[in-house]
Design a binder for these strands. Structure first.
Lengths: 120, 120
DNA sequence: ACGCTCTACTTAGTATTACTAATTAGCAAC
DNA sequence: GTTGCTAATTAGTAATACTAAGTAGAGCGT
């Protein structure tokens, strides 16, 4: 891992990111992994199977996503398509609200520090 | 814990928050805890000793903060005043840069989801 | 037929982070 | 001398994510 901070901040928000991706369109684990590892999300580091699949199981067990099994496609194994449940949509809305509050709070500490640093 | 999301997002960024607080002014564990539990940081939940002190030890072991022991004050035990080392300042600058990148990335996923939701 | 590659999912074991909860200890006020 | 406040320490646990390996189907080239 190139950037050791990646791991740190990533904890916790991946769950929200997966809910966003699933909410945008019905999708499956492998596609999520390739999307995360594609352009735009490099700052998250490279999501691995051992990270993504357990989160999907947790989300399903919590009743936030539902799963539809599609038979094996052109090439490759059978896919598990996930979509948000009503509870999942509600939870995601709450999560997003909280994410906003949270970043505002953390930014506050950062700005306090930087304001002080500028005075030197 | 009232808000179960608190715990999730909090993982990882507390380290940066402590560095910001220590960088702003020399301070000690108990003061950090009371500051975090005071106004403005309620969204972080209530930081407990078992969370803050181990982070301070980690930061010290990593050479990011240095420690000065002050004799017992008017009332209370002796304090351990922490301040940033040069390495700590550098690391904090890097952490802040990364924090910006990180939130932009996560916000991107959130906005993608919300853009799609509005179209419905 | 065989191995190779790609898609796709699963899982065991580990590290890190934070929380719970209890303990120690000095000093002051009553 | 007991209570209350400041201040730090620590043992044990839960949650999150990572490492690394394995399973399995389908298509392709030889």
């Amino acid at each position: 891992m190139e950037n050791r901070y990646v791991q740190q901040f990533k904890k916790g928000s991946l769950e929200m990111i997966l809910l966003c991706l699933i909410g945008k369109k019905e999708t499956y684990g492998y596609e999520i992994i390739t999307e995360l590892n594609g352009s735009g999300a490099a700052v998250l580091g490279y999501a691995k199977e051992g990270t993504v699949y357990p989160i999907l199981y947790r989300l399903q067990e919590a009743g936030l996503v539902q799963c539809r099994i599609a038979p094996a496609a052109a090439n490759g194994g059978s896919k598990k398509y996930y979509s948000l449940t009503e509870k999942g949509e509600e939870t995601l809305r709450e999560l997003i609200l909280f994410w906003r509050e949270y970043t505002v709070c953390v930014d506050g500490f950062v700005e306090d520090y930087q304001r002080m640093e500028e005075k030197l």
